[in-house]
Amino acid sequence: MIPFIRHLKLSVGALCGLALCVNGAQVPQHINIKQLSTTVEDVVVPLPNEIFGALNKLGAVNWKEHVRSDKGPNFTERPRIALLLGTVIADGFIAVQAEDAAAVKDIGQRVMTLAKGIGVGNSITPHAKAIVDAADKRKWENVRQELDRTQNSVQQAMNEVHDEKLSQLVSLGGWLRGTEVLTSVVKEHFSADGAELLHQPDLLSYFQTRLQAMPEFNLPIIRQIHDALVEVKPLIDVGDRRIPAESVKKVNEITTRLGHGIVTRD
């Protein structure tokens, strides 16, 4: 009996402690978002595998048909390299989904070359090596983590030398490739939940604002992306309404066209 009482006392104590640390204060059920406008940080650009993860839960996806590991041309313009780098990192996440070790290794090498081309090769050498090693051992979770670290290191290195605009182009390249694959998958097997994954109006506005602040990058592909985002915005900014199959198809056409433009010499 005594051990039971002691046990009971301990349990009550533990429960009280838990109650205190689990949301001790009352949390407002509703806040006025408009009042936050001056303190809001920039929208965070999701990694492509965040979208792919959600897509996977809607049904089996044949990732192998989306794997792309061709070397492509070498560019000299830094904005073009940055866009391509973001695209290639996204291709890495696709190759991980497809568990294609050969493609992952090719992509690891390609990332290294592009990072060197943009002057941030040193910061990602260990990650590129880790990608290849993990792909050899088929440790997909490690590859995913290293791809994330690669993108983060590249962007940090760019930010350190005040190349924030190039860093944003890396994110944009990744987002465009992710959206191209997302729409391609949803177009093939349409579902309302799949189409809803395209509902990213704030992210689109974020990229539009960033592109507008890059007048010095006077390149055809940048202008094409800028114009294309204007086309895409009404297709995905639908409020509470559903995104129809035609819109998914249209966004896929646009992002496929841009994707081709990013990997192809003018």
């Binding site: 940080e41 965070v44 650009v45 999701p46 959600a54 839960k57 704030d202 992210l203």
Partner: peptide, 8 residues
């Protein structure tokens, strides 16, 4: 501000 995806 953060973009979140239904399903995750």
């Amino acid at each position: 501000r953060q973009q979140l995806f239904k399903g995750n």
